[in-house]
């Protein structure tokens, strides 16, 4: 009984953020990574339940109903059966589950899409090219491979490509969008300044990488996101160095 209640509590706490987002309008600050993870956990729970029952049956039934004895009467018991109630029940369960997951997904996607405008956020142009990333700030400052941003501030990225099909991602923040020539895809994020361990720069760093095969340099098309305190960022922003 205790195990059962712990299990239910566990399910509840890991899916609560998703359920919260289902019922409440989004505030401006929220972590995509946590939102993503709770949506993932929702899917995972359904998958584990469905998978255990199905795979469990596939392992159990051959053992439980194995052929006993050597009397082999080909063709006996080969009449067709079909009680549609079982199939009907499974279909209904699947429809219910899949509706829940779809609705949760739509809510999370909606959250991803509602990006702040360039008055409240810092809007950075991102141009992918073989094989690096070119960042242009609102004041025209232009850097390759390195994106410095202030912490706790919404950052909006307008992503495109100069040549082939790339895909821009700050994977650990669960941010990604395709970079296609002639198209502009928008993603946004908002990062706190604290992290488990600081990077080379002395600040929190996140890895930027390309997620679509784009030629010989695809594996090396990386970049760094550096999250700085606002004052340090201001200094950087108004300077001319990288």
């Amino acid at each position: 009984m205790k195990i059962l209640s712990k299990l239910i509590n566990g399910i509840g706490s890991s899916t609560r953020p998703v359920l919260e987002t289902l019922s409440v309008a989004f505030a401006s600050v929220a972590e995509p990574a946590a939102t993503y993870q709770s949506l993932f956990n929702l899917y995972l729970i359904f998958a584990i339940v469905a998978g255990s029952i199905t795979i469990g049956s596939l392992i159990l039934f051959p053992i439980l109903y194995r052929k006993r004895g050597t009397a082999e009467e080909p063709g006996t018991e080969r009449k067709e059966r079909g009680n549609l109630k079982v199939i009907g029940l499974v279909v209904v369960l699947m429809v219910a589950t899949l509706s829940t997951t779809a609705y949760a997904s739509f809510s999370v996607k909606d959250f991803y899409l509602r990006h702040p405008d360039c008055k409240t956020a810092i809007c950075v142009q991102v141009e992918a090219f073989q094989w690096a990333w070119n960042f242009t700030y609102p004041n025209g400052k232009n850097v390759v491979g390195l994106l410095r941003v202030p912490q706790d501030t919404p950052i909006v990225l307008n992503v495109t490509s100069n040549d082939v099909f790339h895909s821009f991602s700050i994977q650990s923040l669960r941010i990604k969008t395709d970079a296609i020539r002639g198209r502009y895809n928008v993603i946004w994020f908002n990062v706190p300044g604290t992290c488990p361990s600081n990077g080379k720069s002395g600040y929190c760093e996140y890895r930027i990488q390309c997620f679509e095969l784009c030629g010989l340099g695809h594996a090396f098309m990386t970049g760094r996101l550096i999250v700085m305190p606002p004052t340090d960022f201001s200094t950087y922003y108004n300077s001319s160095g990288p």
Binding site: F40, Y43, G51, I55, T101, S105, K109, Y112, K176, F211
Partner: peptide, 23 residues
């Protein structure tokens, strides 16, 4: 196939795909 199909459901989500695409 069960495992493959279930992970396919993960990939069917327009939201989860943001993390999973290209990985």
């Amino acid at each position: 196939f069960v495992i493959g199909g279930l992970t396919g459901v993960f990939n069917s989500s327009l939201a989860l795909d943001i993390a999973q695409r290209g990985t």
